[in-house]
């Protein structure tokens, strides 16, 4: 019997220098995606200086994810479903065919620019709250926002990890309030932009106008939305991606709804693999972002699918 799998598409934050160089040297399908991205953006992404430039990080992450996905498609059946985290939703939508390769790369580049502009006008900070219930975090954020220091839940990652984002004063207020309630660990993150909060309102508006020019096609497999916690539909993609920038992500709930038994994270790092293991204990989880991890997966896949 062939193993059914769900594809997880990495978000930002786990990119590393030189990522994908081994895949680029050895995998033709990966090379083709780098080529497509380079043409769509008029950038030489095969040049390490361009590829590793922090300005191009969102594009590089999506390129790596889609390149790895194309390589996996040689050996694996279509995934049952796709789930991305934030930026990773663009990779997921492109993998499913809903967004074309020609559209997705300029789109993520523009999205990053809108977010940076909004962040420059409304600087934000983010922090991860560990081992507090979602309700506690929501209530503490609402109280601080009502008191004039805006702060919001931004990422519901796992049952034990929620990231908050907002004004520096708001994040400090929530940190103090939650600590007073016995929450021990609130870890500041190295972010200057409060993604997935109302501080991104201007970016969301610009993205909405920009998305109006994208051609949405039908999906080869369902892609779960972090925002609606439902699969994207051709009719809702534009609005959902617009809302995504100002609404919290619900990755954990998407996973629970999709009920995967095997997940493969395509893209840099292991953040989503770890979230998956914490959300659904006992699940088989792989990640592929290099030749080493690709070969490990190929070996195990052929052994379990003989």
């Amino acid at each position: 019997m062939t193993t059914q799998w769900t594809a997880l598409f990495s978000g930002q934050g786990q990119q590393f220098a030189g990522m994908g160089a081994d895949l680029l040297a050895q995998e033709p399908r990966y090379q083709a995606v780098v080529q497509a991205a380079s043409e769509a953006l008029h950038l030489q992404l095969a040049d390490p200086a361009v590829w590793d430039d922090p300005v191009n990080a969102p594009v590089a992450i999506v390129t790596l994810s889609l390149g790895v996905y194309q390589v996996l498609c040689q050996d694996l059946p279509l995934p049952q479903a796709g789930i991305g985290l934030s930026l990773g939703e663009y990779s997921a939508l492109a993998a499913s065919g809903m967004l074309s390769l020609a559209d997705v790369f300029p789109l993520v580049q523009d999205r990053a620019a809108y977010m940076n502009e909004a962040g420059a006008k409304h600087p934000g900070v983010m922090a991860a709250v560990l081992r507090a219930s979602a309700t506690m975090v929501e209530e503490a954020c609402a109280a601080a926002t009502a008191a004039g220091t805006p702060v919001f839940p931004a990422n519901f990652n796992t049952p034990a990890q929620t990231v908050i984002g907002g004004s520096a004063a708001g994040v400090t207020a929530v940190t103090q309030a939650l600590k007073a309630q016995g929450v021990k660990r609130i870890v500041p993150l190295k972010m200057t932009v409060a993604s997935h909060t109302p501080l991104m309102a201007e970016a969301s508006m610009k993205l909405g106008q920009r998305l109006a020019h994208s051609h949405i096609q039908s999906a080869q497999f369902p892609v779960w939305s972090n925002t609606t916690q439902q699969p994207f539909t051709a009719d809702t993609v534009t609005q959902t991606l617009t809302d995504q920038l100002v609404h919290p992500t619900h990755f954990g709930t998407c996973l629970k709804n999709a009920q995967p038994t095997t997940v493969i994270e395509v893209g840099p790092g292991t953040a989503l693999t770890k979230f998956a293991a914490k959300t659904i204990p006992g699940m088989t989880a792989w990640h592929v972002d290099s030749m080493t991890t690709l070969n490990e997966l190929r070996k195990n896949w052929s052994e379990t699918n003989e």
Binding site: A160, Q161, K274
Partner: peptide, 8 residues
Amino acid sequence: LDVFEVVD
């Protein structure tokens, strides 16, 4: 964050 989860 992983280290903190272990520490907890």
